[in-house]
Nucleic acid binder design. Structure first.
Length: 136
DNA sequence: TTTCTCACA
DNA sequence: TGTGAGGA
C-alpha cells in the first residue's frame, strides 16, 4: 500500500503542475473550485498537488478537449468527498491507469521536475509523463 | 520570485 | 477563461 502513499503525497506547487498538465493556473484553480480536485495546502495557503491530483487534472483536460463541461466531468470523476483522507478511493478511471510506478521512475521524475525549475533545461518531462499516463 | 484571492473585461 | 490588482 506504499504506492497509495506516494501517489497521494502532496509534492508540487501549482507552477510545476502547470507544466505537467499543460493547464493554466487559472484553469487548475477553477477546477478546484468545482471540486474536481482537492489539493492540500501549505501553511502559507499554497496548493500542493499529488500525483493523484495531476492524474485527475490530466483526465479533466482530456475530457475538456472532448467538449465535456464541468457538470459532465463531475459525473465521470469520483465524488471527492469531504476531508478526503489522503488515502482517497481510487476512481475507476485511475484504476485503469494506476499500476506500475517504481521508485526508480518516481525518483527520475522528481529529479527531472527539479531540473525543470532551472532555466536552461527545456521540458522533456512532457514526453516522460505522457509515456506514463498514455498507457491507458 | 511565486502563488493567492478577488473581481471585471 | 484571461488578466490585473494588491498581499503574503
Amino acid at each position: 500500500m506504499g504506492d497509495e502513499i506516494r501517489r497521494n503525497m502532496a509534492l508540487f506547487p501549482i507552477g510545476i503542475v502547470m507544466k505537467l498538465t499543460d493547464l493554466t493556473a487559472r484553469q487548475i484553480r477553477y477546477y478546484e473550485q468545482h471540486e474536481l480536485i482537492v489539493p492540500a495546502r501549505t501553511g502559507g495557503n499554497q496548493r500542493l498537488f499529488s500525483f493523484n491530483d495531476v492524474e485527475r487534472l490530466l483526465e479533466i483536460k482530456s475530457l475538456i478537449e472532448k467538449g465535456v463541461n464541468i457538470a459532465g466531468i463531475k459525473q465521470v470523476m469520483n465524488p471527492v468527498s469531504k476531508e478526503s483522507e489522503d488515502a482517497t478511493v481510487v476512481s475507476e478511471l485511475s484504476e485503469v491507469k494506476r499500476r506500475e510506478l517504481s521508485d526508480a521512475q518516481l525518483h527520475r521524475l522528481l529529479k527531472q521536475q527539479l531540473l525543470e525549475k532551472r532555466p536552461g533545461k527545456a521540458s522533456m518531462i512532457q514526453g516522460q509523463l505522457s509515456r506514463f499516463y498514455n498507457k491507458k
